[in-house]
Amino acid sequence: MIAVFKRELKSYFLTPLGYTFMGLFLLIAGFFFSYGNLLPRSPRYAQFFGNILFIYLIAVPLLTMRLLSDERRLKTDQLLLTSPIKVSGIVLGKYLAAFSVFLITLAVTVMYAVLVGIHGDLAVAETIGAYLGFVLLGACFISVGTFISAVTENQVTSAFFTFFALLFIWLIDLVRQIVPMDLTSGLIFAAVAVVAITVYFYMNTRNLVVAAAALLIGAGAVTATFFLRQEFFLGIMSDVLDWLSLLARFGSFSLGILEFSTVVYYVSFTTVFLYLTVQVIEKRRWA
């Protein structure tokens, strides 16, 4: 894992990619710092992070687009996968390399905080909280990008889909407000979910019996829940979307509130996506 990490980190700076990422990130960050803090002489530094969150939409696809897709395109994955290292080690090494580039870049912005601290009254706890939240949020987005680069074979496709995935996560809170909350739509949603899972099973196993069993179990579970706990279906769509709502949880960090549950949430989100990445790579060998 360490060898993969080191090579990947180095390769960011052997290609223009690492510099492009850093340049873009710091350009936008510098711009917002100038306009948000320097020019209006505002010491409210934590607010700065709220302003530059959108940076992820552009910067993360750039950071992760070739992480795993290029290995496949250049067939170097044949070297990695026939070496005595675990797939989880490969994925983790690569993920940590991308994450480190992000951390190095972010470290430059600490200078802004110092600047504010020298010339004004820096809310230290608030700033640390905002940094922590920002880093955790970045960790989540980079894990999504890593996953997408594992399912694509082309940098451009990878960047494109990562952008849209992040955009979706971005808009989730808006979508949540408009999804219907009533019983009927909740039931329809559950039914669609069961059918989708069944199709997924069938596509993977090509086994009608397994698919039929999944369908029956799913339908049974929905029916049972309907009779036992009808209220479960009220607002189910909104609840599911809430699981994916990364941004709504960021708010408390920039207020200087450290919520343990949110930290756990961000870490779990990242873990799930990295786990899925490993699974995708493992599964491809069986395809």
Partner: peptide, 14 residues
């Protein structure tokens, strides 16, 4: 095992 696939798996930037 030592494996040389059809396309040598090289990281060309190194």
């Amino acid at each position: 095992l030592g494996y040389l696939p059809e396309n040598p798996p090289l990281y060309v930037d190194m």
